[in-house]
């Protein structure tokens, strides 16, 4: 069994307008020392997935089914108290906005010390020393002085580093980073990505990085999962997704993005329409109203939900188009346009 396994995870929220199926049957595996990138637009269910793994929906209105196995333990059926003992030590999270994720009344040091002392029975002095170590490790200058600063006294990049220090203070085996660099400037983003890569190698932890930025995913991930409307629509190694993607939505994402490493394309190739409402998910394939190749599925697109099937060596695609046709479209119609001058 893998270190982390999700089996048909479903997270549904009942609302006055209907049932919101934020995550609707998600299955994946992740090993220690590996990085999984989860990509998707807003409302695709990527953040809800991470909160479900951490057990942060417990006690709320969410209806969760399926299985989450972390190191041999099942978490969906586990009690909230038990999951709490795992949070911090076994698994930890880096949030997008460190200013709202940190408590403004306590010093950065106090917040790291608190988490450390919950999991380790040590004196305040020892915990403080550990916190200073951690702040130094993530590259905060003069950690012995900065430990007594409040979150608002840090710059954005420093705050994100402090959050990483907090998340790593108990050596978690699973680290989930939800848009860790979206709020940061590019030069600081590059520093944080380097830091996360180095720390992951040092701790050999499993890392899930959730983002809408394909560039960030490409920098860090071993495997990539593309989500759309609460479902995984394509899964594969980073090479699979960037070199031979097979889902029209993935093509659309690649075509939407101006790229600095290629000659400038005259025109971007956006996906038409807007992301679907999760209350009224389109029938059949959730992507079909926006899909440019919907007409080639023989009328199946809006009646049948396509299955997530393996095309080759662990590369999974949820699409009605036959495999040969997908490959032909990618090679002949999509790829040349992405590289044109």
């Amino acid at each position: 069994m893998s270190f982390l396994e999700l089996n048909d995870l479903r997270v549904h929220f009942p609302t006055d307008d209907g049932l919101v199926k934020s995550v609707d049957g998600l299955t994946f595996k992740l090993e220690r020392g590996k990085t999984l990138g989860i990509v998707g637009e807003s409302g695709s269910g990527k953040s809800v997935t991470s909160l479900a793994i951490l057990g942060l929906h417990k006690g709320g209105r969410a209806m969760i089914s399926g299985e989450i196995w972390l190191d041999g333990e099942e978490l969906v059926s586990a009690s909230a108290e038990h999951v709490r003992t795992l949070r911090g030590k076994k698994m930890a999270m880096i949030f997008q906005d460190p200013l709202s994720a940190m408590h403004p009344y306590y010093t950065v040091g106090a917040q790291i010390v608190e988490a450390y002392r919950i999991h380790h029975h040590v004196s305040k002095a020892v915990a403080r020393k550990h916190a200073i170590d951690m702040l130094g490790r993530v590259g905060i200058p003069q950690p012995e002085r900065r430990i007594d600063s409040y979150p608002h006294e840090f710059s954005g990049g420093m705050r994100q580093r402090a959050m990483i220090a907090m998340a790593l203070s108990c050596d978690p085996e699973l680290l989930i980073a939800d848009e860790p660099t979206t709020a940061l400037d590019v030069t600081v983003q590059a520093q944080i990505l380097d830091l996360m890569r180095d720390l992951q190698q040092e701790f050999n932890s499993a890392l899930i990085i959730i983002t809408h930025d394909l560039g960030v995913v490409a920098e860090l991930s071993d495997d990539i999962l593309v989500m759309y409307g609460g479902k995984c629509i394509e899964y594969g190694t980073a090479e699979d997704i960037f070199e031979r993607p097979e889902h029209p939505y993935t093509w659309g994402l690649l075509g939407s993005m101006p790229r600095l490493d290629r000659a400038r394309t005259e025109r971007l190739m956006p996906i038409k329409g807007t992301p679907p409402s999760l209350i009224n998910v389109p029938s059949g394939c959730a992507f079909h109203p926006r899909c440019a190749f919907e007409g080639r599925t023989g009328g199946k697109a809006n009646t049948q939900v396509p299955e997530l099937l393996e095309t080759e060596g662990g590369h999974l695609v949820r699409c009605h188009l036959p495999r040969e046709e997908r490959r032909a479209i990618w090679e002949n119609e999509i790829k040349p346009n992405l590289e044109s001058v």
């Binding site: 560039g215 490409a218 960037f242």
Partner: peptide, 12 residues
Amino acid sequence: ALLSAVPVPDVK
């Protein structure tokens, strides 16, 4: 520096 800091979606 700005240009080289931009993450590029090229895994190769």
